[in-house]
């Protein structure tokens, strides 16, 4: 895999409508937050340079539409993801229950080479709401789910109060980088010898 590819990490954020996917991304990348609800249409990404251990990598963070009707073209952008972030709202049980669906859907559509070990990270967002009084999904319950699904790292976050957001994305970046499953290396079947270019026996020059 080329060094260029190595430094670009693709991260997909999934979760129900209104759990705060866009807000988490905006808080992380732009350090901005708005409480207003604005639906996301289609898929959209922002990039952020991030230092992981001693390496500088570019994270391409894909924010997605939680409402199905705003994702009409399908999910071709899942392809080549290095990490998938599953977000739910700790105050909405349904959004937690749906993590199962989002995860399954991602694995089917992205079809990573090693689905068992594909890195996911789960974020329980909006822990700030009502001082935690309106929360319906306990940390314990969320952690149990994560453990049961292959020890997925879990973070409780608040995009509004910028709580744990950096830590979560740091972990996301680290796990994405660890995702060593290399993309299938393309080897051309035939090399056009008529072209005026020196060809080598080995396809890879790295």
């Amino acid at each position: 895999m080329s060094a260029r590819k190595r430094t670009l990490l693709k991260v997909i954020i999934l979760g129900d409508s209104g759990v705060g996917k866009t807000s988490l991304m905006n808080q992380y990348v732009n350090k901005k937050f708005t409480a207003q609800y604005k639906a996301t249409i289609g898929a959209d990404f922002l990039t952020k340079e991030v230092q992981v251990e001693d390496r500088l990598v570019t994270m391409q963070i894909w924010d997605t539409a939680g409402q199905e009707r705003f994702q009409s073209l399908g999910v071709a952008f899942y392809r080549g993801a290095d990490c998938c972030v599953l977000v739910y709202d700790v105050n909405v049980m349904k959004s937690f229950d749906n993590l199962e669906n989002w995860r399954a859907e991602f694995l089917i559509q992205a079809s990573p080479q090693d689905p068992e070990n594909f890195p996911f990270v789960v974020l329980g967002n909006k822990v700030d709401v009502d001082g935690g009084n309106s929360r319906v999904v306990s940390e314990k319950k969320a952690k149990q789910w994560c453990t049961a699904h292959g020890n997925i790292p879990y973070f409780e976050t608040s995009a509004k109060e910028d709580y744990n957001v950096d830590a979560a994305f740091q972990c996301i970046a680290k796990n994405a980088l660890k995702n060593e499953t290399e993309e299938e290396i393309y080897l051309p079947d035939t090399i056009d010898v008529t072209q005026n270019r020196p060809t080598k026996s080995s396809a890879c020059e790295c």
Partner: peptide
């Protein structure tokens, strides 16, 4: 209908 999200995304932006 499938293409609609491309148009709508501008409003999102």
């Amino acid at each position: 209908s499938e293409l609609r999200e491309l148009v709508g995304k501008n409003l999102h932006v």
